[in-house]
């Protein structure tokens, strides 16, 4: 892993909402062609971390470096134009727009002409055929899994270097979740760096290269996915010494 592979580096990040500091000390790295998974319980600060990386929330302390440059106060829409594409949790597609409109809007940041975007849309249809079949229907008419694929397709339209996915498996049936995970995995091959936030620990560990676990706004565990043990993970999840569930589970 050479240093020039590094896409995104987050160091000692602090962020939150107003005076509610949710994230106190988070560090992580994403490299091109790899998947970094960010794990942690509910309310640990995962989504807030992503919001700070993408510029939706202000950074109170620490640093976010993207492509070797400090991002500082760069506004969200500029970060998208620099190749940072974020799929928010809860399948946030535009429900009132059609699938094709959603995808076109996904390519907005590339500043391409509509004709060029329509070609790019075709590629997405090849990757997610179901989207092509329903192209002129409103996004609200699709099922949860399809909307998730649309959201990912929309993010890909921006020709990103870094793809950030917030709980793509949330609320999906196991079979569909598996399909989504496979799709995400196959994206690695294109050289894309992926930052994945997940609740589904096992499934996401299987496709990840790097793991970072958050607890109460701090990175409590980080390292290569291949070396993680369940015990380590539970300890990182439920706090340090008095981790009752970890003990229970280990029995």
């Amino acid at each position: 892993m050479t240093e020039e592979n590094i896409l995104l580096e987050v160091e000692h990040l602090q962020t939150g909402y107003g005076d509610l500091k949710v994230v106190r000390d988070v560090s992580l790295t994403v490299r091109s062609g790899q998947i970094t998974v960010l794990l942690g319980r509910n309310g640990a600060g995962k989504t807030t971390t992503l919001r700070a990386i993408t510029g939706l929330n202000r950074t109170y302390g620490g640093e976010v470096r993207y492509l070797g440059k400090k991002l500082g106060e760069t506004v969200a829409h500029r970060r998208v134009a620099q190749g940072m594409s974020y799929v928010q949790e809860g399948k946030r597609v535009f429900h009132e727009l059609t699938i094709e409109q959603n995808l076109l809007l996904g390519g907005f940041s590339t500043k391409s002409k509509k004709r060029a975007l329509l070609e790019a849309v075709q590629e997405i249809y090849e990757f997610f055929p179901i989207l092509g079949d329903k192209r002129s229907l409103p996004a609200s008419s699709m099922s949860g899994g399809q909307q998730q694929m649309l959201a990912i397709g929309q993010a890909l339209m921006a020709k990103p270097k870094l793809l950030i996915l917030d709980e793509p498996s949330q609320g999906l049936a196991p079979a569909i979740m598996k399909e989504v995970m496979e799709r995400v995995h196959s994206l690695k091959a294109t050289g894309l760096g992926i930052l994945l936030v997940e609740q589904a620990v096992q499934e996401s560990l299987e496709i990840s290269d790097e793991v970072s676990v958050l607890d109460m706004g701090r990175t409590s565990l980080a390292g290569p996915a291949s070396s993680m043990t369940l015990e380590q993970l539970q300890e990182a999840y439920f706090g340090t010494s008095e981790s009752v569930p970890a003990k229970q589970m280990a029995e």
Partner: peptide, 27 residues
């Protein structure tokens, strides 16, 4: 609003300002 990119961006922005921002729209 249905066919031009700007029109689509406007409609998207109307539905969800933050999501539009994340698609690169300077809202």
């Amino acid at each position: 609003s249905k066919h031009s990119l700007i029109g689509i961006a406007l409609m998207g922005m109307s539905e969800d300002r933050e999501a539009a921002q994340l698609r690169g729209v300077d809202v």
